[in-house]
Design a protein around this nucleic acid. Sequence first.
DNA 1: TAAAAATACTCCATAGGTATTTTAT
DNA 2: ATAAAATACCTATGGAGTATTTTTA
Lengths: 299, 299
Amino acid sequence: MNLNQLRYFRTLADEKQYTKAASKLFISQPSLSNSMKSFEEEFDNKLFERQGHHVVLTGFGKMIYATVCKSLDTLDQGIIDANQRVSKESDTVRVACLPTAFATMLPKIIQDFKTTTPKTSHFILFSKASIPILTGLQDGKYDIGITSNKKGNNNLHFIPFYTEDIIVLVPKNHPLAKYHKLDLEQLNNHNIITYSTDIPIGETIKNEITSQIYSTHIDTNQIDEVGIAGLVASGQGIGVCADTSFLLPFDLIKVPLNISSNIRIVYIAYNSAHQQTKLMKSFLSFISAYNLKTIPQPT
Amino acid sequence: MNLNQLRYFRTLADEKQYTKAASKLFISQPSLSNSMKSFEEEFDNKLFERQGHHVVLTGFGKMIYATVCKSLDTLDQGIIDANQRVSKESDTVRVACLPTAFATMLPKIIQDFKTTTPKTSHFILFSKASIPILTGLQDGKYDIGITSNKKGNNNLHFIPFYTEDIIVLVPKNHPLAKYHKLDLEQLNNHNIITYSTDIPIGETIKNEITSQIYSTHIDTNQIDEVGIAGLVASGQGIGVCADTSFLLPFDLIKVPLNISSNIRIVYIAYNSAHQQTKLMKSFLSFISAYNLKTIPQPT
DNA sequence: TAAAAATACTCCATAGGTATTTTAT
DNA sequence: ATAAAATACCTATGGAGTATTTTTA
């Protein structure tokens, strides 16, 4: 028995259909079948009865369902509460931030904020990728996130904060280096290196590219600009990524890319379902109004 | 996060020592360390503070502890209740039984019992190994077990039911086949095949042998007499096991073994902490008084 | 006959193990 | 000096995937 089986079981009992439940759980239908099969075997008892194309709980299953829901709710809510109390009790704001912003702008912002507020407020900073930031906001682990957006985060509010250009990254002597702007078609027959599709920005870029280009290999294994730039610098291909401060150390040419979503929007995000401390509210309004001109931008 | 981490966390918080907690959880100390480390990392927050040789919960850890205990208790108790209600509501007795007994004696016992009781009672039978029977009794999955004993099952009551001789199993033309009784020393320099040490009887036999014999290879990979007899029959060595009905099909010689625990005791076991139905009580007293002479014994 | 569930396999992540080093009394 | 925790490394189980077959409205 494991936690996932409990969550799968609850969802399947609610949805009454393997296929629907599996897609809701972001796993495949056979995986859900296997998981529930072994879950049932642990009880030496059936939990579900097939009724044609849908599935209903047995009497025994209903009892287990009540238990599982109660147990999971206790756990999930308890974790949210504990996480939230951290900031409430210690007057702390926990900010989770994309690595690029973490290094360049966050220290300065907090420094500035501290001059405007008399209190000796306390900040805990986390350098994280978008997905962990978003889930951390969901369960109260962070109060504020500097992150990209992703659909389906119902309680999260997003305030546009700054943008990064999406550019093509090429070595200095590369044929594409002479252009001042590139269309997607011009990338044809070049090996394109970009973000993993597990990352929101990677998914967007991959979709853009594959919708227009057919005869090109796309390498979606990198998780940040450092990885992409490294491969470009070693002649593995051309990069497509956001123009961030991570690119500064590299002696590469950046050419603006002419695609519909040619900028990456970075948001200030917070969970409106969670209670906000005074400190958090004031920091939120401060950062929302922050003049990004004063922040060193990559050139 | 997984269920084991929750259980490990609770135990560690109670024991306040990795080594002690690990042994209580039947895992190694480094495994517990690793597990708790990754558990802590999921919270971006410390749960324990090292205080010399022992460990205490942080403030955050205490909040999580309360949640974890509540959630686990809900889950565990709910499963016990659901399991128990199965027999209560349907007037069913669930008997889990070692495979040997399952085939030979259980059907006859139940048949006999049904003639003595007017009711149309219902039995669900499970063929299981000792460990799953014991854990199943613990969490109310089975009402009665026919199984070997193991220390540390606090709520379980054991009534001796029958015994099996521990014997040495050799091929017909084997030098040891001529004896009518064997001492452990005589097994020296023979390859001994016996049960896995994961099984209670295997642990006992392994301890007996290694306490007396030093210059012999012991193969503890088999889970039942069929496996042991199969290897003996194919000349891989000599077997040490219980004399059960599984040995009947094999044309091998059985020689009684002169060790201190030279019989395996099989018990009737039940969980005294769980409520007992009338049907279960009467079956329990029936089987306790059952005359095993009427049961076909292996010869 | 189409949509859903079950089955058969393959693969990889990670939970857990052993051996060792580091830390603290 | 000794006992406990941390670290490094390895192994193997099982959770999740894809491809396919079976089931049933």
